[in-house]
Each structure stands twice: as C-alpha cells, then as structure tokens.
Amino acid sequence: MRIKVLAFATFREILGKEKEVDLPGSASVKELLEALAATSPRFKEAAFEPSGALRDYVLLMVNRKRIDPEQDLSRILAEGDELAVFPPLAGG
C-alpha cells in the first residue's frame, strides 16, 4: 500500500516536503508514523516522546482533514491516502 506523506515546518526539514511510503498490507496512522520513525531517527526524536508516545502537539491530517491523535491513531489508511504531519508554528 502506498501512502503520500506531506511534512511541514520542522518536520519538512527532516522528511522533505513530500514522500511516498510503501507499507505491507493494511496499516494504521500510528503504524505509518512508526515506519517513518524507523527510517529517520531525527523524525523519531522530533515527533515522539522518549516513552514512544506521539508528542501531544503534533498535528495530523488525513487527506487534508484534521484527525484527532488521541482517538484516530488506529485509523486504517487506504491506498493513495495522504497523511500530513507537522508541529504548530508559534512565532510572531
């Protein structure tokens, strides 16, 4: 299954702005994020707590619509889905 990953802000500096990830069989949002973390230690450090939990401020959008990381990490992705992942910007 192929999923497009869009990264913004500091995550874009780590992952590049856009990448395609191939996952075997079906996969959840959480599994996709873990697959990204497995290939990029910098992303792992930026997006995950040392405990392994996703940092609570990370924003996730599936097909450009916000999902709730507290409830929707187990959502199963479909072929061609697009996951956007980014931290909020805070400067002014």
Partner: peptide
Amino acid sequence: HGAISGYQGQ
C-alpha cells in the same frame, strides 16, 4: 490567527 517560524507561516 497567524503564526510564523522562519520561512513558514500559518
């Protein structure tokens, strides 16, 4: 609302 960091903004 608006916010920025470097070259990026929302």
